[in-house]
Structure formats: C-alpha cells, structure tokens
C-alpha cells in the first residue's frame, strides 16, 4: 500500500517559470539545490552574498539586511537566508543588474601561491577599502575577494590564493588573464574604516589573504588621518604564506603609529599571540579577517577582553565546498 506524502506539508514556489515543490523548513537555496537547479552559493550563512535571487514577494528582513538599499529595492534577497512561502515567484539574478565589466591590468606572483591581481572597472567604482567584490569565473561560478587598495590607487588590488582544485582562483591567476575582461559585482561588506574617534587604538588580525582587507584598511585610515596606534598581526601556516612581509615592513617605516607582527603556525596561532599582548581591549577597535574559525573564536575573545561588539569588524573567508 503506497500512500503519497500529505500535500499539506509541502508548498510550491516558481523559479524561472518552473514550479518547485518545497520543504518549508529549508531555505529557498537548499530547496532549489535539492532539485538540482544550479544556483550560485558559497557560505550559506548570509555573508558572501553570492546566492542573490530576485522576487516581488515579501521576504524576511534577515535575507535583505546585508544588501544595499539599491539591491533590496530591485527585489533581491539572499536565498540561503529565506524560507519559501507558498506561491513565491523567484527569478535568478539578472546579471546586468549587478555585474559589470573590469579589465585585469596586471598581476604579481608572490610566495605561498598568492597573487596580487590588479583590476580596473569600467566607469566610476565607489568602494571602501576592506569591502569585497564578487567575481564571476568559469561556469558562472561566483567567488568573493576583499579589496586591498585605496581609491586613490585608481586600480583595484586583490590578493588571490590559488587553490589547486578551485574553480575561480586558478582561472583568475592565469598569466593570460592580463588584459582580458572579467565580470565583477559589489562592493559589499561592512568591514572598513570609519573616520570617527581617530585617536582610538586599533588591533588587526589577519590570517592568509585575510591580510588584503587589512592592508586596505590600514592605508585608508592613514589617508584619513587616523592618529591612534595600529597593531597589525599577520599570520600564516608557514613562511611562504607571509606573502607580503616586505611590503608591510616598508609600510611600517612609513607610518609612525603602525607596528606589524608576523607569526607562523608552529609558533602558535597569531590570534592567541595578539590577545596575549593586548589583554585589555576596552576602547579598542578590532578588525579580524581570514579563516572563519579564527574570526569566530577571536571575536568572542576580543569581546571578553573588553571590546564593544560595535567596535569589532570581521571578514570571515568562507570556503566554498569543492566538488570532486
């Protein structure tokens, strides 16, 4: 005796014209993926913004909060943060609404499989150093990268770690990418310098290419006359991973208030060193970028060390699942 599952505990949404039966307890994204529909995604926790879809139906606040007003206005929402409602009509993100073209102007290969990649977007591109952009790679795969440059550089600088089995990073770092056009969207993200309380001490901890947003933030804070001291901790697994050590030493000479500390894993996690050196973070501004686990743990510890949550800025580099 076979009985069909009761119809009442399922709902239907419409994606790009096809109806999709949904599990009401799962996100829109997971429901679409369960049906083998190809939807861009990465972190599934609302931070990377790659899972943008469009709808005219009501959506929950949390699936819009991280978006810019302009995108919300156009009906975009984060499909990983939204549960489906019956009859919802959803469209995929029309690429021309949010993606634009940019040219890869140059590239510098560093140690530890990291490349500094320089881009020039067509037209005006407003951003805050430390924010991130999304890049569309092969097979429409989208990945997020933080901005290490400042606006007066007139070029966007990204630090890309090449992942052996990655989809976007080897493609982007290939030598023949120079001079070619790519598609980018953004900028997004709230991890950047605000020119208030300029005597405030700032603690910055970055692991791996988590250094990129921090470099942008340090340079930005100086261009905006930040006077408080900056303690920058840069950690990597091994020496080659400290790919920008030379440039940081130059920066340290140039800026009086900046102290840079380097750490490799065998000497203990860099975040532990930093918190040991600065046990009292009351009144400090804290920036944490890179490995999500490091960011999460250190955020808690920084808070317990007295930093106010509003003064802690984070950029967690979520890794996309790698499909074998």
């Amino acid at each position: 005796m076979s009985r069909q599952k009761s119809a009442t505990d399922q709902i239907t949404i419409y994606y790009e014209g096809t109806s999709v039966r949904c599990d009401p307890d799962k996100s829109v994204l997971d429901n679409l993926l369960d049906q083998n529909l190809d939807v861009n995604h990465c972190c599934k926790n609302g931070s990377c913004l790659t899972c943008l879809l469009k709808t005219d139906s009501e959506v929950d606040e949390k699936s819009r909060v991280p978006l810019k007003a302009t995108l919300s206005e156009l009906g975009y929402f984060l499909s990983c943060q939204q549960i489906p409602s019956d009859g919802m009509v959803i469209k995929s993100a029309a690429s021309d609404d949010c993606f634009r073209k940019a040219v890869v102007t140059s590239m510098i290969k560093k140690s530890g499989h990291v490349s500094q990649v320089f881009l020039k977007p067509y037209g005006e591109f407003l951003y805050k150093p430390g924010q991130f952009i999304n890049i569309k790679g092969p097979k429409d795969t989208v990945r997020s990268y933080s901005i290490a440059s400042i606006p007066s550089d007139n070029v966007l600088e990204l630090h890309i770690k090449e992942h052996q089995y990655g989809i976007v990073s080897p493609w982007l770092c290939a030598d023949d990418r120079i001079g070619r056009e790519i598609e980018i969207s953004g900028p997004n993200g709230e991890c950047f310098y605000l020119p208030e309380n300029q005597d405030q001490s700032m603690l910055m901890i970055g692991t791996g290419t988590g250094l990129a947003p921090l470099l942008g933030i340090v340079r930005d804070s100086y261009s905006q006359n930040h006077r408080g001291k900056i303690e920058l901790y840069f950690g990597a697994v091994d020496d080659p991973g400290l790919y920008l050590a030379d440039q940081l030493r130059v920066l340290e000479k140039k800026y009086d208030n900046l102290t840079v500390h380097f750490g490799i894993l065998k000497n203990g996690p860099i975040n532990d060193t930093a918190l040991k050196n600065h046990p009292d973070l009351k009144e400090w501004r804290v920036f944490l970028c890179g490995d999500p686990d490091m960011v999460k743990k250190t955020k808690t510890k920084a808070y317990l060390a007295g930093a106010a949550l509003a003064n802690i800025y984070v950029d967690a580099f979520e890794q996309a699942e790698i499909n074998p």
Binding site: K299, T300, Y303, L304, L309
Partner: peptide
C-alpha cells in the same frame, strides 16, 4: 560575558553572529 566565559555552557552560545545572540 559570564555565559561566554563559562566552559560548561559556552558551546551553546558559539556563533559568528554575536550581535544577534546578544
């Protein structure tokens, strides 16, 4: 702060979104 410093329970409060938790 008390809750987060208490190792017998802080795993229940571990989250990336501390602001929401607070």
């Amino acid at each position: 702060k008390k809750v987060l410093s208490d190792d017998s329970i802080n795993r229940f409060f571990e989250t990336t979104n501390m602001d929401a938790q607070r």
